[in-house]
Design a protein around this nucleic acid. Structure first.
Length: 478
RNA sequence: GGCGGUAUCGUCUAGGGGACUAGGACACAGCCCUCUCAAGGCUGGAACACGGGUUCGAAUCCCGUUACCGCUACCA
């Protein structure tokens, strides 16, 4: 058996949705796992709704996630000629027929059926014309659609996640494959393209289950080999309803800007509807490829939980390779005006050390950047809450900070020396070290939550630390 | 309405006839660690939708019911 070929085929009618991203991910994972090929096809046949911005957003989203495609992007709109030819081929073999019923007539019949409380079914004999009439209308150039003639029997397939799914053909209406303006309908365009692209495995959302029998019928009528199908469960919001804008961020780009790591996003998305079995959760992408198997696919829709995504992100930030994190973080740091490529390169060792301290206590890249602030910038913004809590008595705190400054100015700038000095001071004053450390922490960083105080002092540096203690004392004395 | 799909803690899930007193993770609560915040460790509450079968034995297999979702377009 030759290597599988898979595709992700979004329509460019909006941003790249997390549901789409997950579909892409599972196609990608499957391709990587089996040594197959992963392709991208943009389904832009709906001209009215398709936009170039959406196409760009899809490219950017997939690239950010690292789900790169192996061959040139296919634009469905470029293949309309083939779609049309395939439709005419079906017409010739008798698998399809011309239907001169107009859209208006169809509408009317549908409404009538509904008002009678029944449901509309397309009636094949209704479209049949008396002898000679067909030729006349064709001659006249009357607009008409091409409809697929659904054969009797049943259509079933072995789904990679659902096992056998079967539809009685009588429940499938003869469906249009070519509109009266000569453009193809979705199902037909997809099948024509999938055949042309040599797609052997179709994995997409559950919402396509009722499209699949129609597509199988088309494959058979076109004389093409069937791909294997896999229908992935949907993703819902916390209210159990289909994920939509109401639920807040749903675009992949949103999460990128919220400071989620692509690796964490992939990991989180993979666990929605798939499990490697056992208790395994945090995985690198290589590990996911290694562990991936269609056997682990679930059939149930999953709910997107932002809290767990953030946790997952924290795990990847804290435990992933620090070089990769640093590389990813750099543009954010620069954009925030904290540093430049040059300043980071000049103090690389210091910077990596600081990152090692801070990455454990942030859940998003954006949080991490904020935490970096006091170590990069000269001026410190005192957090009002922290100041109110740690600097209750202004005069006493000012005195304390000056004392601390003077004491620190006398000792060697290493953790042991500083700790000895400060513990002695605390003892002399008959207070716990926290009474000294907390006000100082706010003076140095502006906030009440940081790494250990000696790490902070070391990271900020001698001159700057002493200056900050002075500045805070002055600020408090005013 | 018809057709199809699905059902384990609030959420993500493990489990696929006996190992189940149903395991892990997120979230929540408490404790420990501790100079703060995290991280980490420990503890707690929390689920097999319901009803019938099959079987010595069912979360697991079968049927039905219910609920939810999808499709039912000259949308994709």
């Amino acid at each position: 058996m030759s290597a599988p070929r898979l595709r992700f085929a979004p329509s460019p009618t909006g941003y790249l949705h997390v549901g789409g991203a997950r579909t892409a991910l599972f196609n990608w994972l499957y391709a990587k796992k089996t040594g197959g090929t992963f392709l991208l096809r943009i389904e832009d046949t709906d001209r009215a709704r398709s936009t170039d911005e959406s196409t760009q957003a899809i490219f950017e989203g997939l690239t950010w996630l690292g789900l790169t495609w192996d061959e040139d992007v296919v634009f469905q709109g470029a293949n309309v000629e083939r779609h049309r030819n395939d439709a005419y081929r079906l017409l010739e073999t008798g698998a399809a027929y011309r239907d001169f019923t107009t859209a208006a007539e169809l509408d009317r019949m549908r409404q009538e059926a509904e008002s009678r409380g029944g449901q509309f079914r397309f009636d094949r004999p209704m479209a049949e014309l008396p002898p000679g009439e067909m030729a006349l209308r064709l001659e006249r150039g009357d607009p008409h659609t091409i409809r697929f003639q659904v054969p009797p029997g049943a259509t079933e397939w072995t789904d990679m996640v659902h096992d056998t799914i079967s539809f009685p053909n009588k429940d499938i209406d003869d469906f249009i494959i070519l509109r009266s303006d000569g453009t193809p309908i979705y199902n037909h365009a997809v099948v024509s393209d999938d055949i042309a692209m040599g797609i052997t495995v179709v994995r997409w959302g559950d919402d396509h289950i009722s499209n699949t029998p129609k597509q199988i019928l088309l494959y058979e009528a076109l004389g093409a080999a069937l791909p294997t199908f896999a229908h992935l469960p949907m993703i819902h919001g916390m209210d159990g309803k289909k994920l939509s804008k109401r639920h807040g961020a749903t675009a992949v780009g949103d999460y990128q800007h919220l400071g989620i790591l692509p690796q964490a996003m992939n990991n989180f998305l993979a666990l929605l509807g798939w499990s490697p079995g056992g208790d395994r959760e945090v995985m690198t992408r290589d590990e996911m490829v290694e562990l991936f198997s269609s056997d682990g696919m679930l059939k149930k829709a999953a709910v997107f939980d932002n809290k767990k995504l953030e946790w997952m992100n924290g795990q990847h930030m804290a435990h992933g390779p620090i070089e990769a994190l640093e590389l990813y973080l750099r543009p954010f740091l620069i954009a925030a005006g904290l540093a430049t490529e040059a300043t980071l390169a000049a103090r690389r060792e210091w910077w990596l050390g600081l990152l090692e301290l801070l990455r454990l206590r942030a859940r998003t890249v954006n949080e991490l950047v904020e935490q970096c602030r006091p170590y990069f910038l000269d001026e410190v913004a005192y957090d009002p809450d922290a100041a109110a809590k740690q600097w209750k008595d202004r005069a006493a705190t000012a005195e304390l900070l000056r004392t601390l400054r003077d004491r620190l100015a006398e000792v060697a700038w290493d953790a042991t020396a500083m700790e000895d000095a400060l513990r002695q001071l605390a003892e002399a004053r008959g207070v716990g070290v926290g009474k000294l450390f907390q006000p100082m922490r706010v003076a140095l960083t502006g906030v009440a939550a940081t790494p250990g105080i000696f790490d902070v002092l070391l990271a900020i540096g001698r001159e700057r630390s002493l200056a900050r203690l002075d500045a805070a004392a002055t600020h408090l004395a005013e």
